[in-house]
């Protein structure tokens, strides 16, 4: 960061200009969040009416439930593994395209498509492809009976939703990685090549370090997205099963709140999830960003 700061002297005009944006943020973020905060300390009947103040009871119910901690554990595993997978694949693909391997124009164009597919559609496609009886992957079961069955085996089910989520995130990551790679001055690469370093060496010593800001940005986005945005995929592929093996935190909020109409319990869980995501992001900015050098 440089020491020089640009300041704006006309405070009133500035306030006026940002007012619409602030109003939007207030209406669509702070207001509902405030409402959720209030609900989480009360018991709210579905149709409204007399709600009662119950203090910490909703949070106690949430934290004393062993299955809630199971849900937290699965969510963390899911978020970490789908982030790693989505970013890893995207980085490899972006590097290929950046090196202009044959056909790269077509790939550059096509790799972005999956991002345009809505989560439930992704879920449906993956459910069909990976169905143990009838999907393409059922061939595996003909060679090794029972090796793949996400309807019975919790581990397989987690693998399934991780793959589906990663698949839909790869496209987004790819675009950012590619843009990052292409903004690295060619002269650096060419100089290194003239000094005799090979492709892998140049990647490790020049391209990846210079990609660090992109990398950091994508980690934050991917983790957040996996925590809060994955319920469409879960709902269609596994519906939280088998035996709650894929009952992610965000899916539990959905089923308790929208299916079970227990708004207070869902509100309490939303707050917990919000705090978790905020603290994860905070940690990343506080400790990880220090190691990132912006050029």
């Amino acid at each position: 960061m440089t020491g020089k700061r640009v300041t704006f002297s006309n405070t009133w005009l500035a306030a006026l200009l940002i007012a619409p944006q602030l109003l939007l943020v207030f209406t669509f973020f702070y207001w509902p969040a405030g409402e959720a905060l209030y609900w989480s300390f009360t018991l709210e009947p579905p149709f409204g009416g007399e709600n009662q103040w119950v203090g910490w009871q909703n949070f106690k119910t949430v934290f004393e439930d062993p299955l809630y901690w199971n849900s937290v554990r699965i969510s963390v595993i899911f978020a970490l593994s789908s982030t790693a997978l989505a970013m890893g694949i995207a980085l490899i693909l972006a590097t290929f395209v950046d090196r202009q391997l044959p056909g790269y124009q077509a790939y550059r164009f096509m790799y972005f498509w999956p991002y345009a597919v809505a989560a439930p559609a992704v879920g449906l496609a993956f459910r069909f492809i990976f169905a143990p009886d009838a999907g393409f992957v059922s061939a595996l079961n003909q060679w090794y009976p029972g090796i793949w069955n996400p309807a019975r085996d919790g581990f397989d089910a987690v693998v399934l939703i991780t793959l589906a989520n990663a698949w839909s995130m790869v496209a987004y990551n790819f675009i950012f990685f590619l843009a990052g790679l292409q903004s690295i001055p060619r002269s650096l690469n060419e100089a290194a090549a003239m000094d005799g370093s090979g492709v892998l060496r140049r990647m490790a010593d020049i391209q990846f370090p210079l990609l660090a800001p992109t990398f950091f940005f994508l980690v934050v986005i991917n983790l957040t997205d996996s925590f809060v945005n994955s319920f469409g995929i879960v709902d269609i592929t596994t519906a939280g099963g088998p035996a709650r093996a894929t009952d992610l935190m965000v899916y539990k909020i959905y089923s308790d709140g929208f299916k079970g109409k227990d708004y207070s319990l869902a509100a309490a869980q939303s707050l917990v999830l919000m705090l978790l995501v905020i603290s994860l992001t905070f940690i990343q900015f506080r400790y990880v960003e220090r190691r990132v050098h912006y050029t």
Binding site: R152, D153, G154, G240, G241, P242, A243, R244, S255, D256, K259, G260, K261, D262
Partner: peptide
């Protein structure tokens, strides 16, 4: 009852697995 159905379903899955 919707939540009760889903609790029972989850436990039946655990039993069958």
């Amino acid at each position: 009852f919707t939540s009760i159905r889903s609790e029972v379903r989850s436990e039946l899955e655990a039993i069958m697995n």
